[in-house]
Simulated scan of single mutants.
Amino acid sequence: MRASFFANWQKHWGYIRDVAPYADIHTLIGFLRSADTTELWNQRNLEEWQLPYVCLATCDFPPPTGVAAVHRPEWLRFRFDDRYRTLRDLWIESEPDFTFLRLTYRKPARKKEPGPTEFIKADYVDVDRRWLEGAYATPHKYVIAAMDRTFPS
């Protein structure tokens, strides 16, 4: 699974950015380091198309900084529906059928992370089992360099 992910990492990144606009590459890098530590790659029934959803559900996506800040001033979080209380529930199901949610929060004024008072809305994200068949733009050279530096071939 790990080798397949890295063969397709640019597609994974493209899909993650479609669902979480202006996501930071360092969020993905942190997820991948955690996946290596926890041996996520070895989970029974985990399929490659599910990996972006697992990444999105386990990471926070604060508003971007710099020039991109005007494009997404909100904080994003993602969740599987309530039938999936932990990620382990994904590997238990041989054919997981889940609903996926994008939760939007205002950037907190005096706290590090948003809480219930900053919640704005929840939107359904279309779960696409075939997203790997899509075409995605080549990542920015900074993104490619960050991935190459962190995970050299």
Rank of each mutant, 00 (worst) to 15 (best):
M1V: 06
R2N: 07
S4F: 08
S4Y: 06
F5E: 03
F6K: 01
F6H: 01
W9F: 05
Q10N: 09
Q10H: 12
Q10Y: 04
K11W: 04
H12D: 00
W13P: 01
W13G: 04
I16S: 02
R17S: 07
A20M: 01
P21C: 07
Y22H: 09
A23N: 01
H26V: 01
T27L: 03
L28Q: 02
L28W: 06
G30A: 06
L32Q: 00
L32A: 08
T37A: 15
E39G: 03
E39M: 05
W41G: 04
Q43F: 08
N45A: 13
W49M: 06
Q50I: 04
Q50S: 05
P52D: 02
V54L: 10
A57H: 13
A57T: 10
A57P: 07
T58E: 11
F61R: 03
F61M: 08
P62D: 13
P62K: 05
P63K: 09
P64R: 12
T65H: 10
G66F: 10
A69W: 07
A69Y: 10
V70F: 14
H71C: 11
R72P: 08
P73K: 11
E74Q: 15
E74T: 15
W75L: 10
L76I: 11
R77S: 13
F78K: 11
F78S: 12
F80W: 13
D81V: 03
D89A: 13
L90P: 07
L90F: 06
W91N: 07
W91V: 01
W91Q: 05
I92Y: 05
I92K: 07
E93V: 06
E95T: 13
P96Q: 07
P96W: 03
F98T: 06
T99L: 12
T99I: 09
F100K: 07
L101R: 11
L101M: 13
T104I: 10
T104A: 04
Y105K: 08
R106G: 03
A109K: 08
K111H: 08
G115M: 07
P116G: 10
I120A: 03
K121F: 03
K121Y: 04
A122C: 10
D123S: 12
D123V: 06
D128V: 00
W131V: 04
L132H: 13
E133S: 14
E133K: 13
Y136M: 04
T138N: 05
T138H: 06
Y142W: 03
Y142I: 10
Y142A: 13
I144D: 12
A146R: 14
M147K: 04
R149D: 11
R149T: 14
T150C: 14
F151T: 04
F151K: 07
